[in-house]
Write a protein that binds this DNA or RNA. Structure first.
Lengths: 214, 214
DNA sequence: CGCTGGATTGAGTCCGGTCAAGCCTTGTGG
DNA sequence: CCACAAGGCTTGACCGGACTCAATCCAGCG
């Protein structure tokens, strides 16, 4: 976790991650592996240490929606009541800390910890609402532009790496893989972004990108 | 608030609403009036006493997304950090209780109250995720079917009232008013629902509706 | 009774989905 | 080091679902 990351996108809850680093069980997952499954009974919190994670939800006929992508410092599973409603999978090889909610709460420091957990849940809700607005009211071009902009904003360097493939982008944005690909090509054609391979890009015209993201 | 309502859809947080009924400022709003505005600085919680409320978010060019509809017993504003990110408007004439977060927390009973607020936030997040899945991956027909089903499920009576107009449904579902209207007509044509006027309906074939909602 | 604003219906268009080739990149084994 | 396979990505042609624009329709109300 870099300094720049923390200051740019305050998604982390230091009080929680610090504690989880101390008491959480450290687990590693290979790319593509399931971290937990939709509808599993669960009382767990997961904290990403390294790598990246996606949460997904499946409809009966196989349509897939990605809830969010999680990076080092992020907490997964805050929304959970009795069972997970999303499953979580390793986007890349990754390391996570796992701890039972009940264990965490038995640790003392209740007051501060509860406040931090609530705060983290609140921020997760905000992010979900932003995602909602995008899915409901933005065009394919705007969706892809917003997505690339968000990614680029969390990096301090010029060059941005896409940890996920086109299918994951599509399932996050509510599009098909072909449409995502076409929009990416189009953004390159307008000299707004510039790709080096399919997993690496840089923004060449920020104002234009911001305008497109709407 | 009816008994049936509470048992069917546990969106309420009794510990909070009870307290707010005691200490909150009672305010009434006429249909269409703004309860609070997008980007207002705010530290308020609102609890719906009677009537119905919608939260909306506007894009620069006027596109509108409705975040959710709120009914008696629901709490609005849980996601809020420094400023509101949605505005709230009275869907019908309504009464709400308003209280400052800080005032609520100064009231004592901190432990229990915090837990209740967090729990309410968690449920709000769950609802938002469900909404997200719908916007991202469902067809217009499925969206309208899901919407009517949700409404019908929270009623104990056969006859269900729609407190919102077609435009509000459209902005909640990420559709246009015309498409909503067509889908409603189509559902009637298949004898799945039956409308009496545009604001009142009943479900005539539940299994078919459930199948369509996917 | 006519007015008014919301709802419905219709015709035509376009954005994004579908289906089907191809094209790169990467990795593996000869 | 090259050949080849495999999977992911891109591109093209076509289609269809949802949008746009416009004309009614209808219910509620003065």
């Amino acid at each position: 976790m870099t300094l720049a990351y923390v200051s740019d996108t305050p998604r982390t809850a230091p009080a929680i991650t610090t504690l989880m680093d101390r008491v959480g069980l450290r687990m590693t997952f290979a790319k593509g592996e399931e971290i937990f499954g939709q509808d599993e009974a669960a009382d767990m919190l997961h904290s990403v240490v390294s790598g990246a994670v996606r949460t997904t939800r499946l409809l009966a006929d196989g349509r897939r929606q990605i809830g969010d992508f999680y990076y080092p410092g992020d907490i997964i599973g805050l929304e959970i009541g009795d069972t997970f409603r999303f499953s979580a999978e390793a986007l890349t090889d990754c390391v996570v800390r796992v701890v039972k909610r009940s264990a965490l709460q038995a640790m003392g420091a209740d007051e501060v910890l509860d406040r931090a957990l609530w705060e983290a849940t609140r921020r997760e809700l905000e992010r979900t609402q932003e995602h909602l607005l995008m899915l409901g009211r933005k065009s394919a071009r705007e969706k892809v532009a917003s997505f690339l902009m968000d990614l680029a904003q969390r990096e301090d360097s010029e060059d941005v790496a896409l940890p996920m493939g086109r299918q994951d982008m599509a399932d996050y944005l509510g599009l098909t893989i072909e449409t995502v690909s076409r929009m990416v090509t189009q953004l390159q054609g307008s000299h707004i972004v510039e790709f080096a391979g399919s997993r690496q890009f840089r923004v060449t015209r920020w104002p234009a990108l911001e305008r497109l993201a709407a």
